[in-house]
Design a protein around this nucleic acid. Sequence first.
DNA 1: AATGTTTATATGTAGGTACATAATATTGTC
DNA 2: GACAATATTATGTACCTACATATAAACATT
Lengths: 235, 235
Amino acid sequence: MSGPIRRSWKDVRDHIHRRVLDGTYRPGDKLPRDEDIAETLGCARSTVQRAMQDLSDAGIVERKRKGGTHVRVDPVSRATLDIPITRREVEARGATYSYHLAQRRLAQTPRSIVTTLALSAPEEMLHVQALHLSDRRPYIYEDRWVSTRTAPEILDVDLSRFSANEWLVRNKPYSRYDLRLYAIAAEAAEAVQLDVEQGAALLVIERTTWIGDLPITTVRSVTTPGYQLLAQNGE
Amino acid sequence: MSGPIRRSWKDVRDHIHRRVLDGTYRPGDKLPRDEDIAETLGCARSTVQRAMQDLSDAGIVERKRKGGTHVRVDPVSRATLDIPITRREVEARGATYSYHLAQRRLAQTPRSIVTTLALSAPEEMLHVQALHLSDRRPYIYEDRWVSTRTAPEILDVDLSRFSANEWLVRNKPYSRYDLRLYAIAAEAAEAVQLDVEQGAALLVIERTTWIGDLPITTVRSVTTPGYQLLAQNGE
DNA sequence: AATGTTTATATGTAGGTACATAATATTGTC
DNA sequence: GACAATATTATGTACCTACATATAAACATT
């Protein structure tokens, strides 16, 4: 149907995608081999390959050597979350960002942190608690542990002026991370810091980063009520 | 330093990535042009291009025509969340999945749904409320609206036996979606359905899908206490 | 029938060439 | 100096060829 005169790999991708969307190819169906599609659409196989790679990344199709390309049976909803530096996030919404350091001290990591960071034993790390504010109102409360072994320079940073969040993200690239999202009821300490009622439902974003096998930091960011994480995709 | 004998694009990618990680290239720095990197590493430019594309997708570098390639100044934490079919999720953890339809009726969309789906005016849709269970215990409570205009076939599906979640994801591919994550305190209705105390902190996953401009469905999935969304990345 | 081995084949990758495109840098004009 | 037109250049895309790799399918062996 749709003309044989196609060019870019995005056209090819959209062409195939459309056929999945309109039911020409249904979940589980096998698609023609790249070469045949290329011939049908009048383009090179490499162009089809590029298009298919994208559809595969997007979770639309599955490809296997020799096995061919199939429309995914259980399409997962694949969402890409971008978690920006908190200051940027606040400023992007036109609000004034500010920051308050609540605690900074060296301490032995408790068991929970040992587990999270996959340490072999407790060790001394920098424990930082800080509040990010948007228009002078509490926005995110972060409880962070930073490895002084992996990131010793953090000890020289004036954390009362610059957030560890920002310094780390700019100066300590990581090679691996975990992200964990869940809800908690505000406990006494958090309720006070965030100025919310005890028991309020709050979204927590927990992030842990490593460089190679070395732990850099783990942070538990407790957001204020109403906070939403958004992801969009498509078109 | 690292030998000039490199081959695959993944090697090239890792090589560059390593140099970002070890500080050879710092945030904001400009990288050599693809051609020079290709020459240095002894590979074709297309191989470097492939590697750079991947680093760009991962949010490590930014590329601009004529402008060259730069290490991102504000590295965002980019996480890919896969949200599977609920049944699969439960079964993957070795639990027994079951499902209970709580309500199914045609109704006018309330204002909030009109907004979410970007409708021009309220219209009649299928309103479904259902409970997903894991080992006979409440797991996720979903409140869903399905467009009978875009997906009329849903009216013929026996929703007391098959979840709308599964039917839709298998039969109604979408071209665009929104994802929204936040925390709520359980209200009376939810507390009863999920068998939790009123006021308990719950993670909510809200998903809306369209095909082109046509709304398919919007669902508000309220998870049980302790539910976590995970994303991992790297190495 | 169950198991191991070989073969065929679709995708994956690398190399090379040519041209397209966008955006910066330069030049020209007032 | 300000601004518009033009040239330059790094990335992006397309096409082709050749070979690598995984694995489904066919075949052989117990």
